[in-house]
């Protein structure tokens, strides 16, 4: 807990990492100025891209005592404004799940290579990044906690599968490797509450360590303060749950 007589400082900058297939991609990396050991958090950006909101979100974790990194998942399609790149990626059908997993694992390994890493890592994402967070928690070894914020299309019908997304995340549930926190809005259409319920049943079936919270009077993206879907009460409570969850599993 921050006290007013504490020193606080942070470094936040763009770095290069070797992502999926060794491809060089940029990542936004923020960490507190300290030589003390730090746990890490990988942030998976949302559909609107590697944007200002995600840079702020990354710095927020640094402020709370984590080495935090957010890779640019859209870099292989070039550079431009985050919005232009997001629209280009949308027209291409999204980024391949395998590529995202490679980039997320590379980000975690980057943090792990640092001399003051504790070797404990969390992963978090919102919107499409929430779906990819669940995939990462199932497919990548080394994460100690995962937070899926309103990730849509964890449950996918066969006709919704694409070459980029060939397997529904829910089908990986038996492989979930770490505790999971899920934060959802009751008025969300993606994922709708009935799909969250199907996901929860699958987690129960495989006896997984998870906790889901479904907020009333909230829909998709209820923590986005710059969007009309922002819901102050749910957003404040959700952030408290995220920090409590990560502190328990990554700092304990």
């Amino acid at each position: 807990m921050y006290q007013t007589d504490m020193y606080e400082g942070m470094i936040a900058e763009t770095v290069s990492i070797n992502g999926h297939n060794g491809d060089n991609i940029y990542a936004y990396y923020a960490r507190p100025i300290t030589s003390e050991p730090l746990p890490g958090v990988v942030l998976i950006h949302h559909m609107p891209g590697w944007d200002e909101w995600y840079r702020e979100f990354t710095r927020k974790f640094a402020h709370h005592g984590y080495a935090a990194i957010s890779p640019n998942l859209y870099q292989r399609s070039g550079h431009g404004t985050p919005e232009d790149m997001a629209m280009k990626i949308r027209s291409e059908g999204g980024v391949p799940d395998d590529q995202v997993m490679g980039d997320v694992e590379a980000s975690m390994k980057y943090l792990n290579s640092l001399p003051n890493s504790t070797g404990k890592f969390g992963v978090i994402g919102t919107c499409s990044g929430g779906r990819q967070t669940y995939l990462a928690a199932c497919r990548i070894d080394g994460f100690n906690a995962a937070v899926d914020c309103w990730g849509g299309r964890v449950v996918q019908a066969k006709e919704e599968l694409t070459p980029q997304q060939p397997i529904a995340p829910i089908d990986y549930t038996k492989d979930l490797k770490c505790p999971l926190l899920g934060l959802f809005g009751e008025e969300d259409q993606s994922p709708p509450p009935d799909q969250v319920a199907i996901h929860e049943e699958e987690l129960k079936k495989h006896n997984k360590n998870y906790e889901f919270h479904m907020y009333q009077n909230a829909g998709h993206g209820f923590m986005y303060y710059d969007r009309p879907m922002y819901r102050q009460e749910a957003a404040v409570d959700a952030w408290a749950k995220i920090t409590e969850f990560f502190d328990k599993h990554l700092k304990g």
Binding site: M47, P48, S77, G78, H79, G80, T81, E83, D84, M85, A86, M87, K88, R90, S91, C127, Q189, G219, H220, G221, R227, P228, M229
Partner: peptide, 22 residues
Amino acid sequence: HPFHAPMEYTVNLDFTNESMGP
């Protein structure tokens, strides 16, 4: 999802010329 319109979902018309960049 839109980037700017104050709604959760919108129909988005994205007219492009890929040869001229994003």
